[in-house]
Design a protein around this nucleic acid. Sequence first.
DNA 1: AGGAGTTTGTGAACGGGAGAACAAAACGGA
DNA 2: TCCGTTTTGTTCTCCCGTTCACAAACTCCT
Lengths: 221, 221
Amino acid sequence: MTARTSTESARDIPEATVARLPVYLRALTALSEAGTGTCSSEALAAAAGVNSAKLRKDLSYLGSYGTRGVGYDVDYLRYQIAREIGVTQDWPVVIVGIGNLGHALANYSGFRSRGFRTVALLDADPARHGEMVAGIEVQPFSDLESIVAEHGVAIGVIATPAVAAQAVADRMVACGITSILNFAAGVLSVPAGVDVRKVDLSVELQVLAYHEQRKAQGELA
Amino acid sequence: MTARTSTESARDIPEATVARLPVYLRALTALSEAGTGTCSSEALAAAAGVNSAKLRKDLSYLGSYGTRGVGYDVDYLRYQIAREIGVTQDWPVVIVGIGNLGHALANYSGFRSRGFRTVALLDADPARHGEMVAGIEVQPFSDLESIVAEHGVAIGVIATPAVAAQAVADRMVACGITSILNFAAGVLSVPAGVDVRKVDLSVELQVLAYHEQRKAQGELA
DNA sequence: AGGAGTTTGTGAACGGGAGAACAAAACGGA
DNA sequence: TCCGTTTTGTTCTCCCGTTCACAAACTCCT
Ligand SMILES: NC(=O)c1ccc[n+]([C@@H]2O[C@H](COP(=O)([O-])OP(=O)(O)OC[C@H]3O[C@@H](n4cnc5c(N)ncnc54)[C@H](O)[C@@H]3O)[C@@H](O)[C@H]2O)c1
Ligand SMILES: NC(=O)c1ccc[n+]([C@@H]2O[C@H](COP(=O)([O-])OP(=O)(O)OC[C@H]3O[C@@H](n4cnc5c(N)ncnc54)[C@H](O)[C@@H]3O)[C@@H](O)[C@H]2O)c1
């Protein structure tokens, strides 16, 4: 929006790099827990499953945190990446649609341990209200506005059926949520300034099926 | 492997296009159910949430299934895409790790309706054996080999904790599975010829957090 | 102090995908 | 039959991301 004259970490990081930083972060955490103090770009790249040149270029967008001839300090680099992607702070999250998938998400401990705190579970079905899931009570969807206002929620997760997803997204956007993780099928339309990421398991399986079919065809030749 | 002298559909489709074909397929299904017989690239692109030029280029890799001045026949195009990505046939699938996420996946009807049939639910924990989930009995993980052989399974889904994922993948590969959908964190190492797709929900949230943080920084300036 | 050995950070070449723009083709009406 | 309209299929250009390759920088050993 405005010109970016601020302090450090003001350079804009390529999207492809942003998507890999969490992978590096996880690999560094594993190394740290294993007692490793220092690692080379080669070793970290192997742990993260990427090319080492790509890793070094990715890290170079953050700054020069390595030492030539030595490598990277695991804990220091871990902190720098965590700070850059914003997981040093605590992100309140609401999950809407507590069905099969919503239950699994609510019970997933990996979110909490990475800086995401589920502050509410919402569902439109009155039969679900009051149920305790992972220590949190399922509340009516109509409580969305007050909860978002109270906790300053910026991130919402949609796990409702596809037909309800757009309406849920509209409500979320209206009350100030600016990032949405969507598990429902179909495209969400949201105003500019709101980020949507979509996870579509059917697409993943269908891509696998395509390649599988090609393998089978090849064998006939 | 060998030169590709076979019949039609022998051209190789770009990966980015392959990943979008399932999206077009879903949009076409919705149009068909709404009674639409014909649609333009513009209309279909809007329904799928992509640029119309991109859509036309994607479809051109399959062949010339449209009619200039008219558009595409919805059902005909739907069949052509389904055939190309291999969802006209039935794909048997095994799910390993029937915990929170495994339950949700087993209960998900969207897989069955898109040509994927869950033939077995496997778990290493004896306490889970015999439990019925979505009409299927949870079986011991050691039954993997016989089930894969019996049903000709080519696609496996891993929903175990991260520590077990590599071992599960090794067993899958050893008994002939050549496509894996992995929900566990960390990188899987598999031999060439085996496709792995990874779904990492934490990464998705962290990417959202990164952009969210940048938005917040911008407001201070 | 100096040289050999490592490893980072980055410039440059390369490849693939996105989007604009247009020619070719089909249709409909006169 | 012919012309205007619509929409596809494709070409061309640009941009982003990947990878190679190497100079700069640091450590360690003699
Ligand atoms: N279960 C899976 O493994 C899986 C996999 C891929 C995609 N999905 C998608 O995720 C979504 C949820 O799947 P599921 O299996 O959990 O479905 P589900 O039917 O079990 O749960 C949906 C929940 O959303 C609630 N809901 C419906 N309308 C609502 C509204 N307007 N506001 C708030 N809540 C509402 C329902 O009461 C229900 O509890 C679906 O869109 C599905 O396509 C699920
Ligand atoms: N629940 C979620 O929403 C969610 C989200 C993102 C990622 N994940 C990932 O998905 C995986 C599963 O998550 P979950 O919440 O279902 O965990 P969970 O602990 O509820 O379930 C794991 C299941 O795997 C079984 N298992 C363990 N070792 C096994 C082995 N060697 N062979 C076969 N089965 C084995 C366990 O008995 C258990 O039933 C984890 O890796 C998790 O990080 C889960």
